[in-house]
Simulated assay, not measured.
Amino acid sequence: MSRMDGRVPGASEMRSCAAGFVARVTARNRLPLDYSVASLRVVDFLIDGLRKGGAGREQVREMLFGLGAYVGEVLVRRAGAVWVDFDADQREYFGQPVGVRMSDGRVWNPLGKVGNRFELGGPGESLQTFYLTLHGRARGVVA
């Protein structure tokens, strides 16, 4: 996954990637992408729509990247996470260059979770459920 210019952004750029994605998507549609936990249901719905539309992963790569950046930013704003650049072992394990670290030190891969929802679908891959069952989540954080 990458941005339009083909370069994969680092952790320091993910907040702006999420904001740019939200601006682009909400300019065309009235989607409630407000970085709330409830908005993760919208993300689930959008990914399910991409799946039902029959698009291949490569065709929706940029959309999935944007949704992953958005999910990660929800974790940052609502769960006390921070964006981090993965080390070599984490990159190999997660298949992504960036993710989030929770206040308890656990790392999560929101870009990969979005990809899993697209590939596998179903309630077991819900991003809202992922957030609600997330270990290491701080309560009541708004950044």
Rank of each mutant, 00 (worst) to 15 (best):
L33K: 07
R61N: 03
A79I: 02
A69V: 05
F65H: 14
E58H: 08
D48W: 09
Y35K: 12
F65E: 05
S36P: 09
E58N: 06
R77I: 11
V60L: 09
L40H: 12
L46K: 03
R61D: 12
L46Q: 06
A79D: 02
A69H: 05
G72D: 05
L67G: 01
A55N: 13
L46P: 01
L64C: 07
V76R: 12
D44W: 04
G49A: 08
L50R: 10
P32F: 06
L67T: 05
L75G: 12
G53R: 14
P32R: 14
E73T: 07
G80N: 05
F65V: 06
S36R: 10
E58Q: 08
V76A: 11
G68V: 02
G66V: 08
G56W: 03
K52M: 12
A55K: 14
N29H: 09
V60T: 06
I47W: 04
D34K: 15
L67H: 04
A79V: 02
E62D: 14
R61C: 03
G56Q: 08
V42L: 14
T26N: 00
V25N: 00
V25Y: 04
S39V: 10
R51V: 15
S39H: 12
L46Y: 01
M63G: 00
P32K: 11
F65A: 08
K52P: 02
L50V: 13
L33E: 14
V60W: 10
G66L: 09
R41A: 13
R30N: 05
V25Q: 03
N29I: 00
G49T: 07
V25G: 00
P32Q: 13
S36K: 07
Y35G: 09
E58L: 06
L64V: 04
G80F: 04
Q59S: 15
G80E: 07
V60D: 10
S39R: 10
S36H: 10
L31H: 02
M63D: 08
V71M: 03
